[in-house]
Design a binder for these strands. Structure first.
Length: 335
DNA sequence: CCACAAATAT
DNA sequence: GATATTTGTG
C-alpha cells in the first residue's frame, strides 16, 4: 500500500484551484434562507418591496427567486453588513409572508473538484465513518447538505459496486456519463475492499479546510463578525469553502456541459459537528446568526454556518438552459 | 434521529 | 440525464 499520504493534505491543498485560476467569476452564493432571513435586497433600499422583478414566474409560490441579489458595483467590499437595514420583519407586510418555508434549493452540480473532495473525505474517514453527515462535515463546503451527500454517496456506491463487478472481464467500453464524473477521481484502494479499517488512515490534522478564493477576505470578515459575537473563536482554523455559482465550464476540457441545472440551496444543517459519540475530530464553533424561521435543528451538534458576504446571482445561466439555474460549487478546472 | 437502498419525481 | 425527494427498513 503506498499510502504515502504523509502529505495528502499538502496534495489536497495543491490540487485546489489557485486563487488566480479560480474566480473568474464573481458570483458567490448566499444561502437563500439566509438571504431571506436577513431580508437582503438590493442595497438600493428604496422600496422595501418590489419583490417581483420583471420576471413572471409561473404559478406556485415560487419563492422569491433567489436571484436579484445584485450587488452594486462594489461587491468586493468589505463587509458591507447588509442585513440590518431590514428590521421591519415584524410586520413584513407584503413581502414578508413566509416564503423561505417552501424554498427549494438548487440542484447541486458535482464537479470533479467537488467530487474529489468528496472522495478524499470518504477515503480519509474510512468507510466505516463515511456516512453522509460526517462526510458533509469534513468536506466543509458551504451549502452542501446532508441530502446532497447522501444522494451522491448512494450513486457512488453503486458505481463502486459496478466497478468491482467487472474487474476482469467485461467490456466496459462505455460507461454512463455518470461514471465519467466518478472516473475523474481515482478510487482509493480500500473502497473496493469491504475490509479496511480506518486505523491506518491518518485522520486529518485538524484539517484546515481550504481557503482559497480571495473572497476569503470576506469570510474573514464574516469570521471576524462571528468572532465578535463569539469571542471564543479560535485562530484560523477552518474556513468553509464558499460556494460559487458557476455554470458551464469555461473552456477547459469540457467536463460537464451546461446541461443540468438546479435550484438554489440553503444552509439548514451543514454546520459543524461535535464529537458526539466518538470524538472523531475537533469540533468547531463559529457563530452565526440564524434568524427566525427554521426551528434550527436542535443543537445536538452545534452547527453553524459561515455567513457568506457577497451574493450575486447568475441570471444568464438561467437563460442558457431554459430557466434552470445551475449551481456548481467552486469553479471547475480539471486538475 | 440517522443511514441506507430502491423507487420515483423533477 | 443528473440530482432530489420519497418511501420503507434497520
Amino acid at each position: 500500500m503506498r499510502e504515502d499520504d504523509s502529505d495528502w493534505f499538502a496534495r489536497w491543498e495543491e490540487e485546489l484551484p489557485s486563487p488566480e485560476e479560480l474566480m473568474p467569476i464573481s458570483q458567490s452564493l448566499i444561502s437563500p434562507d439566509l438571504a431571506l432571513a436577513f431580508d437582503i435586497r438590493t442595497p438600493n433600499h428604496g422600496n422595501g418591496n418590489s419583490n417581483q422583478p420583471h420576471h413572471h414566474h409561473h404559478h406556485q409560490t415560487t419563492p422569491p427567486t433567489p436571484s436579484q441579489l445584485q450587488l452594486p458595483s462594489s461587491q468586493a467590499n468589505s463587509s458591507a453588513e447588509f442585513a440590518a437595514d431590514s428590521a421591519d420583519l415584524g410586520s413584513g407586510g407584503a413581502a414578508g409572508d413566509e416564503p423561505a418555508r417552501t424554498l427549494k434549493r438548487p440542484r447541486l452540480v458535482w464537479t470533479p473538484q467537488l467530487h474529489k473532495r468528496f472522495v478524499d473525505a470518504v477515503a480519509h474517514l474510512g468507510i466505516k465513518n463515511a456516512v453522509p453527515k460526517t462526510i458533509m462535515q469534513l468536506m466543509s463546503v458551504d451549502g452542501l447538505t446532508r441530502e446532497n451527500v447522501a444522494s451522491h454517496l448512494q450513486k457512488y456506491r453503486l458505481y463502486l459496486k459496478r466497478m468491482q463487478g467487472l474487474s476482469s472481464g467485461g467490456g466496459a467500453g462505455s460507461d454512463p456519463a455518470t461514471d465519467r464524473l466518478f472516473a475523474s477521481s481515482p478510487v482509493p484502494a480500500h473502497f473496493l475492499h469491504p475490509n479496511r479499517v480506518p486505523s491506518s488512515d491518518h485522520f486529518m490534522p485538524s484539517f484546515v479546510p481550504i481557503a482559497t478564493l480571495q473572497q476569503q477576505q470576506q469570510m474573514a470578515a464574516a469570521a471576524a463578525a462571528a468572532a465578535a459575537a463569539n469571542p471564543h473563536l479560535q485562530p484560523p482554523q477552518f474556513h468553509r469553502q464558499i460556494a460559487a455559482a458557476h455554470f458551464g465550464s469555461p473552456t477547459n476540457g469540457g467536463f460537464s456541459s451546461p446541461t443540468s441545472n438546479g435550484q438554489f440551496g440553503s444552509p439548514t444543517s451543514n454546520g459543524f459537528g461535535s464529537p458526539t459519540t466518538n470524538g472523531k475530530f475537533d469540533p468547531s464553533f463559529l457563530a452565526v446568526r440564524q434568524t427566525q424561521q427554521q426551528p434550527i435543528q436542535r443543537m445536538s451538534t452545534p452547527s453553524l454556518h459561515s455567513p457568506v458576504s457577497n451574493y450575486v446571482e447568475d441570471l444568464e445561466s438561467a437563460n442558457a438552459n431554459g430557466g434552470r439555474t445551475v449551481l456548481t460549487l467552486f469553479p471547475t478546472r480539471d486538475d
